Computed example of a mutant assay.
Amino acid sequence: MTHTPPADLLTRANHWREDISFTQNVLGKPFNFTTTWGIFSPEKLDDGSLMLLDYVDFQPNDNSIDLGCGYGVLGMTAARECPNGVHTLIDKDFMAVEYAKRNCQANSLNNVDVHLSNGFNHVADDKTFSLVMSNLPAKVGKEQHYLYLLDAYNRMEQGGRFYVVTINGLRQFMKRAFTEVFGNYKKVKQGKTYTISMAVKE
């Protein structure tokens, strides 16, 4: 006898295939987001990214890159807070990039460049950045984290800032890695779950 999934499960699955839309304030001003299941934190902005944004020193002329952008909140915020700069949003997940593009368009952010890239591997060679931001995932491995830091260092302008949010379990690793690559490290904020760290290209 052939098994058939329950009708209520099929109904719910049809609902899950639909886009998820929500509006959420970021730094006191609303953004409209469209997301989908399979992208990180699809129903609301994740606490780590929101915590990071509270501590970034945005400058009007910053050119930024959102490394592993997901559906776009870090890069979108930079585009809004730094209107004179150009803001690059990259991710290796094609669905994340698709939704980040849609979210930038929906929020009338035109000073952005959103595209697929595995780290910095597919970022134009002539691009440099004064601001790098990343919600670093814990599961990609420390080797990949070092590659992100080394590649960012090579692309950053003098005085450029690199901000990351990580789970607290990576705090000591980030201290060591930032110090090795940049020669400096600052713990900006530590909460119950996340730590904001930064380094400056001197």
Results as ranks from 00 to 15, higher is better:
residue 2 T to E: 15
residue 6 P to H: 07
residue 7 A to N: 06
residue 8 D to M: 06
residue 9 L to K: 05
residue 9 L to W: 09
residue 11 T to Q: 14
residue 12 R to Q: 14
residue 12 R to Y: 11
residue 14 N to E: 14
residue 16 W to E: 14
residue 18 E to A: 14
residue 20 I to P: 03
residue 23 T to V: 13
residue 24 Q to M: 04
residue 27 L to C: 10
residue 30 P to R: 11
residue 33 F to H: 05
residue 33 F to R: 02
residue 34 T to H: 06
residue 34 T to S: 13
residue 35 T to Y: 06
residue 35 T to W: 01
residue 36 T to F: 03
residue 37 W to R: 15
residue 38 G to Y: 02
residue 40 F to K: 07
residue 44 K to Q: 14
residue 49 S to V: 03
residue 49 S to D: 08
residue 50 L to R: 15
residue 55 Y to Q: 12
residue 57 D to I: 01
residue 58 F to Y: 08
residue 59 Q to R: 15
residue 60 P to D: 10
residue 65 I to S: 05
residue 68 G to Q: 05
residue 74 L to T: 09
residue 74 L to N: 10
residue 75 G to Q: 05
residue 76 M to W: 09
residue 82 C to Y: 03
residue 85 G to K: 06
residue 86 V to G: 07
residue 87 H to I: 10
residue 88 T to F: 09
residue 89 L to V: 08
residue 90 I to N: 01
residue 94 F to H: 13
residue 96 A to Q: 04
residue 96 A to W: 02
residue 98 E to V: 00
residue 102 R to L: 12
residue 102 R to G: 13
residue 103 N to P: 06
residue 110 N to I: 09
residue 111 N to K: 11
residue 111 N to W: 03
residue 112 V to H: 02
residue 116 L to P: 09
residue 117 S to W: 07
residue 118 N to D: 15
residue 123 V to D: 02
residue 124 A to M: 13
residue 125 D to E: 15
residue 125 D to V: 12
residue 128 T to L: 06
residue 130 S to H: 04
residue 131 L to P: 03
residue 134 S to P: 01
residue 136 L to Q: 04
residue 136 L to P: 02
residue 142 K to I: 11
residue 143 E to W: 00
residue 147 L to N: 10
residue 151 D to T: 08
residue 156 M to Q: 07
residue 163 Y to T: 03
residue 164 V to M: 14
residue 165 V to W: 01
residue 165 V to L: 07
residue 169 G to Q: 15
residue 170 L to K: 13
residue 171 R to P: 00
residue 171 R to D: 12
residue 173 F to V: 10
residue 178 F to T: 02
residue 178 F to I: 04
residue 180 E to F: 00
residue 180 E to R: 12
residue 181 V to T: 14
residue 182 F to A: 04
residue 183 G to Y: 09
residue 184 N to G: 12
residue 185 Y to D: 08
residue 187 K to P: 00
residue 195 T to K: 01
residue 197 S to P: 00
residue 199 A to N: 03
residue 199 A to T: 05
